[in-house]
Design a protein around this nucleic acid. Structure first.
Length: 555
RNA sequence: GCGCCUGUAGCUCAGCUGGAUAGAGCAACGGACUUCUAAUCCGUAGGCCGCAGGUUCGAAUCCUGCCAGGCGCGCCA
């Protein structure tokens, strides 16, 4: 509808110019949008205002000239000039009816587009160290990364979702040490458990498993070797659990990428060699420094420590170089907000490898405030006391958790109240939206039962001219807005745009539902309304799908 | 001190690539179930858009400064 209006405006402007009422034929970028108030019509354009400078005319004069040359249409009621020069279009219901048909025809592709032009995008998210279970913060990152991937894919990007496994380095070693100490405890050797080791109960479980597998003689193994065995076993098991928990949360990846593999393949050393060759690094105090300041970082960063070990940064450089070599046009990393200090140095690395800055993007997800009935839930990672993602999914369910995580912009901190997420009421947005889907399913089932000859699933927008109620037109207008919202959400990588849209659509439906019966005595009206609610059902489902939330037939 | 994020109704937040009279949910108050699911709806009330300048025909939106909160500033990951 918007581009039809836009074309009409352009055509009218040309005619106005031919008639000598406008001086320039130049058509600037204009907006066609739905005004906030009904008194301002159904659609509105700022064409006259943005043309004022070019035409050297008052906006309202331009608007009047354009309207005067507009071809009349039977679906346009009237066109007005308003405010500083807006051109407002008041449409008849027939203008909106084709939308229902479009939704039904496109079905699960309604809202999809080629906006991304198949650009290859990698979205890397979660990427938690396999040293312990995923916690709440990881949950938000997982929900965001997964939804961003879904949305970009739907908007025509070629998307790959990836998990980077930090299975190398000191933390894994610490994990091994933690298990080893607990294992010795189990075997009856009193130990002084180190302060910097992982303290959660899961470490004890892992120690028990290692002991069972390796047998009692394991205790007398060389400590260095034993820690290594513990580390490898524990990391493997924890990663397995992470995969499982993510799958339960509805998150799957196209690729799991091991940090260790970058070392094994010599990739890290090669990247460092390239930096050396290109003079990007220098030695100071026995360490090797990367001149990240040349690319806008606040200070240079160490890639090889004076003890000869590489830093985490070194493998990250190699990893990101490898991403581009795999052919991705754009790389998006989803990180917790506490890692923001890391962006500039990695961006420097990307630029050092000759990539444009905008091909690397970091989505910083702000922290989650976990509450229970309004009161903060106390957590201490050091003491190993924290609420895991699994705990949350077990308590409130996957759908409620995901919807809650995606309800706000990730730029803002998020209050996640377990009590609210569990409530089956209007306090809980997920049910508000899912309820629409379930309600419509109920209606369609009843319609089918009453008139078996009416095949609602193959309904193709019949008797749509019967749809004239204000709530019906409002509902169709909202349906018409979905593709644009998907595009907006994709362009900004903001999943909450879809959340907000779904809430709006749900509200429009509930308002309609409470005012009008779908199944009436009038067969034609009933068929028209069945088409309409079927279209609503499909759009709700498509939107929920993008957020990774299910659309239930019954509640 | 420096950097990133945030500041909008009592609370939680949308709106931020500039547009008309700033929106939603919760909480408060008053209504609607003989109905295709009341997990819903309708109404009322609630605002120096943190403060001060600037740019603009027009600023919650862009720029600058300040104030407040969160996070970060390692040869850790």
């Amino acid at each position: 509808m918007k581009h039809i209006i836009k074309n009409k405006v352009i055509a009218a402007a040309r005619k106005a110019m031919d008639a000598g009422m406008l001086v320039s034929g130049h058509v600037p970028e204009m907006e066609i949008e739905a005004p906030k108030h009904d008194s301002q019509g159904d659609l509105s354009t700022n064409f006259a205002m943005v043309s004022a400078a070019i035409q050297k005319m008052a906006p309202r004069k331009i608007a009047e000239a354009v309207i005067a040359h507009m071809e009349p249409e039977d679906w346009i009621d009237k066109i007005e000039v308003a405010g500083p020069g807006f051109i407002n279009f008041f449409l008849r219901p027939s203008a909106w009816h084709p939308v229902v048909d479009q939704v039904l025809a496109a079905d699960d592709r309604y809202g999809a587009s080629d906006f991304g032009k198949k650009e290859r995008v990698q979205v890397e998210f979660v990427s938690a160290n396999p040293t312990g279970p995923l916690h709440v913060g990881h949950g938000r990152g997982a929900a965001v990364g997964d939804a961003v991937g879904n949305i970009l894919r739907f908007a025509g990007f070629s998307v790959s979702k990836e998990y980077y496994i930090n299975d190398s380095g000191r933390q894994i070693r610490t994990l091994g040490t933690s298990v080893w100490f607990r294992l010795r405890e189990l075997a009856g050797h009193p130990v002084d458990f180190p302060e910097d080791c992982y303290k959660g109960d899961y470490i004890k479980d892992l120690a028990r498993e290692v002991l069972d597998r390796e047998g009692p003689d394991f205790i007398s193994r060389d400590e260095d070797e034993a820690i290594d065995v513990c580390a490898r076993y524990a990391a493997g098991r924890i990663l397995e659990q992470i995969r499982y928990d993510l799958a339960d949360f509805g998150v799957t990846f196209d690729q799991w990428f091991s940090e260790q593999s970058l070392y094994d393949s010599g990739r890290v050393q090669r990247s460092i060699a390239v930096l050396k060759k290109e003079g990007r690094v220098y030695e100071k105090d026995g360490a090797l420094w990367f001149r990240t300041q040349d690319f806008g970082d606040e200070k240079d960063r160490v890639v090889v420590r004076s003890n000869g070990l590489t830093t985490y940064f070194a493998s990250d450089i190699a990893y990101h170089q490898e991403k581009y070599e795999r052919g991705f046009d754009r790389v998006i990393d989803v990180w917790g907000a506490d890692h923001h200090g890391y962006i500039n140095r990695l961006a420097a690395a990307v630029m050092a490898f000759g990539k444009q800055r905008d091909r690397f993007q970091v989505i910083l997800v702000q922290l989650v405030n976990l509450l229970r009935g309004g009161k903060p839930v106390q957590m201490s990672t050091r003491a190993g006391e924290f609420v895991t993602l699994k705990d949350i999914v077990d308590e409130v369910g996957k759908d409620a958790a995901r919807f809650m995580f995606l309800s706000r912009s990730y730029d803002s901190g998020l209050d996640f109240d377990l009590e609210v997420a569990k409530q089956k009421s209007s306090d809980n947005p997920v049910y508000y939206v899912q309820y629409v889907h379930a309600r419509i399913s109920g209606i369609l089932a009843k319609a089918k039962a009453q008139s078996p000859e009416m095949d609602v699933d193959f309904n193709r927008g019949q008797y749509l001219s019967k749809l004239v109620a204000q709530e019906e037109i409002q509902l169709i207008k909202t349906l018409a807005g979905f593709p644009e919202q998907v595009e907006k959400s994709a362009a900004a990588c903001h999943p909450h745009v879809i959340f907000t849209y779904l809430m709006t659509l749900a509200a429009a439906f509930h308002a309609y539902y409470n005012r009008h019966k779908v199944i009436t005595e009038d067969t034609e009206l009933t068929l028209a309304r069945v088409s309409l609610v079927l279209a609503v059902k499909k759009v709700i489902r498509n939107g929920l799908f993008l957020l990774g939330v299910s659309a239930p037939e019954r509640m």
